[in-house]
């Protein structure tokens, strides 16, 4: 549906000029290679209480690797509630959770309109499933809480003009970030949860070069690898050792159950690493 309420940008996509870097060696491979260890996530910055008008809020930033070839991820999350529901809403014994994930129009190379597109709605559904398991919902009957996440800068490679649309692998990274930042904001809003909840991504990747066999890495960046074979994003409750949301995607032989389990395990590892930052951040706020 067309957005008629705002002045929109031109309908046809315009390609931003990509200038050749003077310093870049012509022979240099345009792909950057992964310098982190296979089990290391990128550096995270997390801060709560950034939006004073909201009941709870948090800001998350993931460092941009590879000297600016890939933009980092910047997320801001606000939590409004618990608040009473409008009169017309029927009785609910639980808190009604609604989640919105929205890319800012300028977040990626491809402009996002103001209306949420199906991909953003899909992310919202994933986030809802992840958070609903963590919130102790029956402590607030007849009330609602809104979790609103704006992705200020999306994880996207800046150099290649090949992938115009947001690749599906980037959305997994974005979802993991959304889960972590939402958990911090929920804690900031003082909404009771069974545990902190952290998101992590693991992927089975194939690196450039002939002799490399596929390996599992955490926090993958598509540009760093030749090809991503499959990936999974988990929402994990660390102290309870439970998964509230699991999203796996790719192409794995069904006979190789071991590989799948390993991938999920690695995803949990990634979530645990993110949780360290989350807990540290919450401690800081308390103290």
């Amino acid at each position: 549906m067309a957005d008629r309420r705002r002045i929109n940008g031109p309908a046809g996509a315009t390609l931003p000029p990509v200038y050749l870097n003077e310093d870049a060696q012509p022979s240099d491979d345009s792909k950057i290679s992964r310098t982190r260890a296979a089990n290391a996530i990128r550096k995270l910055y997390l801060k709560t209480g950034v939006t004073p008008s909201a009941s709870g809020s948090a800001y998350l930033e993931i460092e941009a690797p590879g000297g600016g070839a890939v933009s980092g991820l910047k997320l801001s999350c606000t939590v409004h509630g618990p608040r009473s529901l409008p009169r017309s809403t029927p009785f609910s014994p639980h808190i009604i959770l609604s989640t919105h994930v929205k890319y800012a129009p300028f977040a990626t190379k491809q402009r996002h309109g103001y209306l949420r597109d199906p991909m953003e709605r899909d992310l919202g559904t994933h986030l809802e499933a992840a958070l609903r398991g963590a919130i102790i919902a029956d402590r607030w009957p007849k009330s609602g809480v809104d979790v609103i996440i704006s992705i200020i800068e999306g994880d996207q490679d800046r150099q290649t003009s090949k992938s115009q649309e947001l690749g599906s692998w980037e959305t997994m990274n974005a979802l993991a970030g959304c889960i972590t930042v939402a958990s911090a904001a929920l804690a900031d809003a003082g909404i009771d949860c069974v545990d902190t909840i952290a998101g992590g991504v693991a992927a089975l990747v194939k690196d450039a070069g002939d002799n490399n066999s596929p390996r599992i890495v955490i926090d993958p960046i598509p540009l760093e690898h030749e090809k991503i074979l499959s990936a999974c994003c988990v929402a994990y409750l660390p102290t309870r050792d439970e998964v509230t949301n699991l999203w796996f995607k790719g192409d794995l032989p069904a006979s190789d159950m071991e590989l799948y389990t390993q991938l999920v395990e690695t995803g949990i590892q990634a979530a645990k690493s993110a949780n360290l930052v989350l807990v540290e951040c919450l401690h800081e706020t308390m103290g």
Binding site: L85, P86, S88, T89, P90, I96, L97, S98
Partner: peptide
């Protein structure tokens, strides 16, 4: 029809 899913 008005009763139902979350978000009213």
């Amino acid at each position: 029809r008005r009763v139902g899913t979350t978000g009213g």
